[in-house]
């Protein structure tokens, strides 16, 4: 049976922010500090500090990964006090960032 019949690596989702310029909650890419623990090769973010405000993470609703060149980016959609955020961790630069506010 054919085990190589589908290759999902084709990219078609070139993101175009709807409101370019100014504050765009869909395209923040701001560096943040994150309190997380690493266990059994998995990452569990617990809290993050953004603009000098601390956000406790109540739940991680989903996580996924993407390889960008040699870097592996770990993404997390998290819930903090009823608001959803997307955070990411670059395992090559060890940088955490807030990607967007999920509305």
């Amino acid at each position: 049976m054919n085990q190589n019949s589908f290759n999902p690596k084709a990219r078609w989702d070139r993101f175009e922010p709807e409101k370019p310029g100014g504050f765009n909650p869909d395209d923040l890419a701001e560096r943040i500090e994150v309190l997380a623990y690493f266990k059994h090769a998995r990452i569990y973010p617990r809290a993050f500090t953004w603009n000098n405000k601390e956000y406790r993470i109540d739940a991680v609703t989903y996580n996924w990964q993407e390889r960008l060149g040699q870097a592996l980016i770990n993404y997390f959609s998290v819930n903090s006090s009823g608001q959803m955020y997307q955070l990411s961790f670059n395992n090559s630069t060890f940088r955490w960032q807030i990607d967007k506010i999920i509305s």
Binding site: P8, K9, R11, D13, F15, Y62, W64, Q65, E66, Y75
Partner: peptide
């Protein structure tokens, strides 16, 4: 807006 990375990963 679609973000294919998460669909591919899943």
């Amino acid at each position: 807006a679609a973000d294919q990375a998460k669909y591919i990963w899943t």
